[in-house]
């Protein structure tokens, strides 16, 4: 930090650099939006899937599980639970909770109706069909 490099130069580089890189970020975001339809499985966003997403949110599933790797790390990844377990297993599993096995991690009982379970499964199926660049590395998530 010699005397040649002044505070106002540092300030100008800060403003200039920030604005420039934020604009680059916005441009990349703009381009991402053009690419999304090819990858995000949005053509399968049915009313059932949308209802399922809301069930997913209002039961705070993300508080224990990960979805596409994001969330809590206490319970299995569910982005690929549909291919891993299949719809019937998922529904039966939800209905059987909590297991009550002593000392084991417990999942609450959410008392979802059959329709709601189908909606949740539809959401998980939709999620599993998003193009995630082959993540996770294997079916165990």
């Amino acid at each position: 930090m010699s005397g040649v490099f002044t505070k106002s130069m540092a300030r100008n580089i800060f403003y200039g650099g920030t604005v420039f890189f934020f604009l680059v970020f916005l441009a990349l975001t703009f381009d991402s939006h053009r690419e999304f339809p090819k990858r995000d499985n949005s053509h399968n966003l049915t009313p059932e899937v949308i209802a399922g997403k809301k069930i997913w949110e209002t039961r705070n599933c993300i508080g224990c599980h990960t979805l596409l790797g994001e969330g809590a790390y206490f319970a299995p990844e569910l982005g690929n639970v549909y291919p891993r377990r299949g719809p019937d297993f998922i529904k039966a599993w939800m209905q059987a909770q909590p297991t009550g096995a002593p000392g084991r991690r417990q999942m609450p009982q959410f008392h979802l109706s059959d329709t709601e379970l189908d909606q949740l499964v539809a959401f998980l199926k939709y999620t599993s069909e998003i193009n995630t660049a082959n993540w996770p590395p294997n079916i165990e998530g």
Partner: peptide, 20 residues
């Protein structure tokens, strides 16, 4: 900010965003 703003991209690898 020069590194961190576009650094946001390290969260976009596996969530369905473009692979670039």
């Amino acid at each position: 900010l020069v590194t961190g703003i576009i650094g946001t991209g390290h969260h976009y690898y596996w969530i369905g965003a473009p692979e670039y």
